[in-house]
């Protein structure tokens, strides 16, 4: 592995994404990407008593599913990176506590999935074992409860608000394999443009996404059109259009290849999700479901996956802090 440019690491031995799994809730399975997900839940409680338990069970199921699909025995997994939005990442640690896999909990808010892919591929490239897992989860109800209001409160969501995706995603990374390969990783810097409105996350995170995308392109000397797809995690409709606007002012024309998982996840008009999807599972499930399928079928050959996160909590919001954004990118090629 060597560092190129300012922030990008080029892997000497590109790491294969062996298999992915995704599990989503009812609303997500009513959306346009339904057929790409492995498991669609009818009941957001998932047979459990609380939202938190349901989220843990989802991450457990997604890891079990990815292990089954990849046919790798659990004992061969050398490490697992996982994280989520709930305080101290309880969904992840409770969901996987029975697995007996070396566990490294990470927090990158909604950028967690790509953060896991990035760290996992760097470890494997460095020779630390053969197989690793990156996983994440989020749940609309547990996120509303923690960050916003009780579900039964009769309030209105402003048009800039985004809808937390209920779901979980997991991917098995392998040192040896036939691709799709993770070839470059670009960890992001925190960018905070002073946005304070927790109902406008897309605008808060978009500058971080632009920073990471443009840095990646500069570091690698690639043009946007090198990629078949440049995909951000959960900027939603407003964030997406900000990325397009601002990258243009920097002299980059992204519109032909750029899209956002939060935009793809829901049908904005029919599902009334306002500015689109968000949450750790947004980027995770859309990649694991839709894009991994496209890579396998060679419909997309090169993609840059850029997950975005808002690094705040309700205390920082109440104390009047602005929302620091972050974005991590991995370049995936076949």
């Amino acid at each position: 592995m060597k560092k190129i440019g300012n922030q990008t690491f080029k892997l000497d031995n590109p790491v294969t994404i062996l298999e992915t799994a995704s599990i989503v809730g009812k609303k997500e399975s009513d959306g346009p990407l339904a057929k790409y997900f492995d498991v669609c839940l009818e009941d957001e409680f998932y047979g459990e008593k609380t939202w938190e338990k349901a989220e843990s069970k989802m991450i457990k199921t997604s890891i079990e599913t990815v292990l089954k699909k990849s046919k790798i025995p659990i004992s061969s997994i050398d490490f697992l990176f996982a994280g989520d939005l709930l305080n101290q990442c309880i969904s992840s640690s409770f969901g996987i506590r029975d697995f007996e896999i070396p566990f490294l909990g990470i927090f990158g808010a909604c950028s967690t999935f790509v953060e896991g892919l990035m760290l996992g591929s760097m470890l494997l490239d460095g020779g630390a074992g053969k197989f690793g897992i990156a996983a994440t989860s989020s749940h609309f109800c547990s996120a509303e409860k923690q960050f916003r209001f009780p579900l039964e409160l009769g309030n209105q969501r402003p048009p800039t608000a985004q809808w937390t995706v209920t779901g979980s995603a997991a991917a098995v990374l392998a040192k040896d394999g036939i691709g799709p390969y993770i070839t470059h990783v670009t960890p992001g810097k925190i960018v905070d443009k002073g946005i304070k409105d927790a109902n406008n996350m897309g605008s808060a995170m978009a500058p971080a996404a632009i920073s990471t995308i443009l840095t990646h392109l500069k570091d690698t000397g690639r043009k946007p059109t090198y990629y078949d797809a440049i995909i951000t995690g959960d900027l939603g409709h407003i964030g997406k259009s900000i990325v397009l606007d601002l990258s243009k002012t920097e002299g980059y024309q992204l519109s032909s290849v750029y899209n956002d998982c939060g935009v793809l996840m829901f049908d904005k008009e029919k599902q009334d999700t306002h500015s689109g999807g968000s949450g750790c599972a947004c980027c995770g499930t859309v990649f694991s479901g839709y894009f991994f399928n496209q890579l396998k079928e060679k419909k997309i050959k090169k993609m840059l996956l850029v997950a975005t996160g808002a690094l705040m909590n309700s205390t920082s919001s109440q104390q009047g802090e602005s929302i620091p954004g972050i974005a991590h990118a991995v370049s995936i090629e076949i």
Partner: peptide
Amino acid sequence: GYIASLVSKPKMKKQ
């Protein structure tokens, strides 16, 4: 409010 919490629990929002 107390009675409601005894007999009912929150449900996922459809929209």
